[in-house]
Amino acid sequence: MSRILVTGAQGQLGSEIIKISKEYPTFDFIFVDMEEMPLEDITKVIAFLDKTVPDIIISAGAYTAVDKAEIEKELADQVNHLAIDTISHWCSNNGSKLIHISTDYIFDGTSKLPYNENDIAAPINWYGETKRRGELSIERNLNDAVIIRTSWVYSEYGNNFVKTMLRLMNERESISVVNDQIGTPTYALDLAKAIMKILTSDNLVPGFFHYSNEGEISWYEFAVEINRLSGLNCIINAVTSDQFPTAAKRPNFSLLEKTKIKKTYNVLVPEWKESLAKCLKILNS
C-alpha cells in the first residue's frame, strides 16, 4: 500500500482530496497542515518526512495570500520556494514521487493565446515569483516530478472568490468586479479528481501540466454567473484593473492550455459553469 502525504490539508485542494480519499482504499493517506509540518521551518519539514517516509507527496500547501506576499516576502519565499526545494530534494534522496501544485501567476499575462506548458515564465508579482522559484527547485532536484499549474481556485472550503462574492452580494445592492483579467476558474474538487486520476494511472508521466475548468471568462463574468445561479439581485458593475488597484499586480490574461493533461492522463475537464453550479448548490444549501 502506497503512503501518500498531502500537504495543505486544511486548504481548498487538501480539503477536497480528504473528501474523496475514502474512495481510494489502496492508498494510505497522511494529511498535514502547517501545524504538523510547518513549511516555513525546514528542519521540521525534514524531520516529519523522515518520520513518515511517504512514497508519494502531493504538495498542495502554499502561501497563497497574493497581496500580502508583497509585504511578507521572506515568509512567502520560505513556504513556496525553500520548503519545496527541501521536499523535492528529500524525494530525490528517498526515491519518493512528487506531485506539486503551482499557479498561472508564474506568467506575465501578455499572451493572446492560452499558455501551454512550454511558454516562458515571467512572474509580475512576488507570489508568482516564489511559486516559480519552487518550480525551478523541483526541476533541479527531481527528473520525475509532476507539476500542475492551476488558476482561480475555489471550493466550499477556505477563502476564495466565490465565497467572497456570495457574502458581498448578500450584503450590498451593488458591487464592482474587474473585467479586464481573463482566465478560467478551477473547482478544487475537479482538480482533486484529476490528481487522483494521475495517481492511479499505470505510468506516472513527469513534467509540467496545466489544469483549470474549460472556458474563457473575466472575473466580472464569473461574478455575474455566481449572482445568477444563486438567484440574487445584486447589481454587478464592470471596472478595469486600474480602477481597482491591489498591492500585487495580476496578469491580464492567464488562460491555461489543457491539451497535455487531457491526452497524457485522460483527465476529464468540466466546463466552468457546470462546476460552479455544483459548488454553489453545496454553498447555498
Results as ranks from 00 to 15, higher is better:
Arg172Ile: 00
Arg172Tyr: 14
Gln10Tyr: 04
Ile120Pro: 13
Cys91Met: 05
Glu36Val: 05
Asp28Val: 06
Glu171Leu: 00
Lys249Asn: 13
Leu49Ile: 12
Ile101Asp: 13
Glu16Gln: 13
Leu75Tyr: 07
Lys19Leu: 01
Cys234Asp: 14
Ile17Ala: 04
Glu221Pro: 06
Trp219Tyr: 15
Ile101Glu: 14
Ile20Thr: 10
Gly231Tyr: 01
Asp108Gln: 13
Gln10Phe: 06
Thr186Pro: 07
Lys193Val: 10
Ile71Trp: 10
Gln78Pro: 05
Ile147Phe: 03
Lys258Val: 10
Lys131His: 11
Gly109Asp: 10
Val269Cys: 07
Asn179Leu: 02
Ser212Val: 03
Phe31Pro: 03
Leu49Asp: 08
Ser241Trp: 00
Ser21Glu: 07
Arg3Leu: 02
Leu113Trp: 15
Ser155His: 02
Leu280Ala: 09
Gly61Arg: 04
Lys73Ala: 01
Glu156Asp: 14
Glu72Phe: 05
Glu35Met: 09
Leu98Ile: 03
Ile175Val: 07
Thr264Ser: 10
Leu280Glu: 03
Asp41Lys: 01
Pro245Thr: 01
Arg172Val: 13
Phe253Lys: 09
Met165Gln: 15
Ala9Leu: 04
Pro123Phe: 04
Gly61Phe: 06
Arg133Lys: 14
Thr43Ile: 06
Leu283Asp: 12
Lys163Pro: 09
Ile71Ala: 13
Met37Gln: 09
Val6Cys: 00
Met34Cys: 08
Gly207Met: 02
Lys22Leu: 05
Tyr63Cys: 00
Asp190Pro: 08
Leu232Ser: 14
Ser2Thr: 02
Ile138Phe: 03
Leu113Lys: 14
Leu229Asp: 09
Asp67Ala: 01
Ser96Cys: 10
Ile175Trp: 05
Cys279Pro: 11
Thr164Cys: 14
Phe253Asn: 13
Asn80Arg: 07
Ser59Glu: 09
Phe107Tyr: 09
Met1Asn: 11
Met34Tyr: 12
Asn179Phe: 09
Ile236Val: 08
Arg228Leu: 03
Tyr265Met: 07
Asn116Arg: 09
Lys278Ala: 11
Ile124Leu: 07
Pro185Leu: 07
Gly61Glu: 12
Thr184Gln: 10
Asn252His: 15
Glu214Leu: 01
His100Thr: 07
Ala192Phe: 08
Pro123Lys: 12
His89Met: 13
Val239Lys: 15
Thr26Val: 01
